[in-house]
Design a protein around this nucleic acid. Sequence first.
RNA 1: GCCCCGGUAGUAUAGCCCGGUCCAGUAUGCGGGCCUGUCGAGCCCGUGACCCGGGUUCGAAUCCCGGCCGGGGCGCCA
Length: 433
Amino acid sequence: MSFPRKTHWTKNITPGLDGKEVVLAGWVWDVRDIGNIKFILLRDREGLIQLTVKKGTVPEDVWNVVSSLNKEDAIVVKGIVKASRIAKAGIEVFPSEVYIVARSKALPIDIWGSVETDLDTRLRYRSVDLKRPVNSLIFRASSEVTRAIRDSLYNHGFIEVFTPKIIVTSTEGGAELFTVQYFERVAYLAQSPQLYKEELTASLERIFEIAPAYRAEKHNTNYHLNEFISVDIEEAFANYMDVMDILEDVIINVHDRVNRAFSDELNKYGIEVRNPRKPFRRITYDEALDMLGKRGLKVDWGEDVPKNGMEILSEEIGEPFFIIHFPTNIRAFYTKPLDSDPRISESFDLVMGGLEIASGSSRIHDRGQLTEALRKRGLNPESFGSHLMIYDYGMPPHAGWGMGLYRLLMVLLRRSNIREVVLYPRDRFRLEP
RNA sequence: GCCCCGGUAGUAUAGCCCGGUCCAGUAUGCGGGCCUGUCGAGCCCGUGACCCGGGUUCGAAUCCCGGCCGGGGCGCCA
């Protein structure tokens, strides 16, 4: 089938193009059939535009083709742009050629918004669901977020790397791992690039990775997934305070860039992204416990701050904010204790939307101390042999953080379920599509 | 791992508590018809469903048990 090449996105059809010929391509969003005049709403990734067809003023074959259109048929349209006072958007296109390049059956779910479809059902037909303009917006914004993150990190001298996702041992202990059959051996899906990125500071100094991570935990909440995208950085010759500054900068840039590119579109859906101000509040773990105590939530020293605690703190001090100086023994083994008090650590969490969005720390860079930390947690240093080896060859002091990209997106775009910001989420019961 | 809740047309829901009035109501979609400026288009006609298995009962969408699937919360985690 031959048809002309698309020349414009729908959003680029402006009154300034009045009288110009354009080629549009997309899907039939709606047909308003008034009899001898038909209005076709054409959707593409960037928006909607109205095509107007009047019987008698268009070629017979165009009229016939338009009369046969169904919702979601994929079409290519050549036509003349008309600035219009009658059309609500102030602009419409009068087609001279219409090519139906693919037909659509009736959709299994409502993407037009007259009936809200359950998230579960939407995810079952996810690629259909993604046709909804709000979803196009979410994933265009999502792309802008990762771009902002990359730009910020490059500006700080970081380079992007890729580490293996099929690994032989646990990297942190903690979360359960998925096993995979690796030829004649059992291997695991990486729960984090932690050890690799630390090792890389001994050569590449400042590195980041945006990649999937896997956790075989049977949780069932609206903010956990078994496969998620982790944004990880690690910096040589730096401590937790240095990398917190970088994280702060990343978060500021993400908000700013999303707002610049999408605030108008987001507002249409009632989504308001508020730019946070630097510096973010930094409260210590001890201060957090005090604040929670005053609000009637008792957390024992050495316990993690529970979910509702995060929410109370968010209310109390505004967002985003950092909690710093967690007890050493509730953090991962590689976390560096404070020199002045080894019971607490050079660590932090970034909290937004009552959720832990990122966490990081200074890392131990002394082999003896790291070996000791492994032992204290009941881990066997021998199984970390190839990792520990690198600490004999000039391992610099270093620090870093890991951030849950989907959590950031969820909070940023004010979605109540993390699955909304993931194209094809993997959770306890969802392995397809 | 623990606790709570749910499953009715393609989609979203009413009905269930208090069994019969339900060959299951409504909206939207879909099919057909009318209409030359719609923009949540409108009006008319039509279409289509009680998760699976067992039990109680004269009678089950409705009550009981089991299974499957899903939603929410806690824990663990990011």
